[in-house]
């Protein structure tokens, strides 16, 4: 499901950033990939059940899968 979108995923933490980004704003990694699928956006981490279950405590936008690896 690697289709062309305007977002690329950080290979280290899975954060989705606009194409052309050189350094991941979340973890500082410089490796990105287009081969991601699934997306999780946490808007309100304090009240989100999903965020609590996954231990996410700040607003994020992440890829769920990179290749076959689960990122969250």
């Amino acid at each position: 499901m690697a289709r062309r979108t305007s977002l690329i995923a950080c290979k280290n933490c899975g954060a989705l950033v606009p194409r052309g980004t050189k350094v991941c704003p979340e973890c500082g990694s410089t490796q990105f990939t287009e081969n991601w699928s699934g997306m999780l956006v946490v808007v309100d981490p304090e009240n989100s059940v999903i965020a609590r279950e996954l231990g996410i405590d700040k607003p994020v936008r992440k890829a769920i899968l990179i290749g076959k690896k689960v990122m969250i």
């Binding site: 499901m1 699928s37 699934g38 997306m39 999780l40 956006v41 808007v43 309100d44």
Partner: peptide, 30 residues
């Protein structure tokens, strides 16, 4: 089909702009 990520991105922006009580947005893989 194929527009899931775009829709989710727009919804996320709208939620922030309008202050809606949407807590998370999920595009399931596969």
């Amino acid at each position: 089909s194929g527009a899931e990520v775009n829709v989710a991105t727009i919804i996320a922006e709208r939620v922030r702009a309008l202050g809606l009580d949407i807590r998370s947005i999920i595009v399931p893989p596969r």
